[in-house]
């Protein structure tokens, strides 16, 4: 891949990352009141989206790769259980990621 293509891709990604961040500041610049519906979605959507993202990450779990799938599900369970128990992101993410990498090499 050429450097130009790579940096062009990064540029597109950077712009598209910024758009959702700047949008509310452009739309609701203080003059208009924020509609109730938007506030409501702002409160509820993050929880729902996070659930969707967890599923999105383990979407490749399938019967065609039972071993990798089992490891992935196990590591997710470990991450969640550890986090429920110890409440330390570093610990939960670190331990489960290392566990997954080790399991893959068995």
């Amino acid at each position: 891949m050429s450097e130009t293509t790579m940096f062009l891709s990064i540029l597109v990604c950077a712009i598209c990352s910024f758009i959702p961040r700047v949008l509310p500041f452009l739309c609701f610049n203080g003059k208009k009141e924020v509609p109730r519906t938007v506030t409501y979605l702002g409160n509820t959507l993050p929880m729902a989206v996070m659930a969707v993202l967890v599923i999105y990450c383990i979407k490749s779990v399938s019967l065609s790769a039972p071993r990798e799938s089992a490891f992935q599900l196990l590591a997710v369970a470990v991450a969640m259980a550890l986090h429920w128990w110890k409440n330390s992101p570093l610990l939960s993410i670190g331990v489960s990621t290392i566990l997954y990498m080790v399991l893959l090499r068995l």
């Binding site: 996070m50 967890v54 999105y56 383990i58 590591a75 991450a79 990621t97 997954y100």
Partner: peptide, 20 residues
């Protein structure tokens, strides 16, 4: 480093637990 990308899945799982 195969498998290191699992950190993203773990991050989402962790945020999910926190929000829950």
């Amino acid at each position: 480093m195969t498998g290191v990308d699992f950190a993203m899945t773990a991050l989402f799982a962790v945020i999910f637990v926190e929000q829950w």
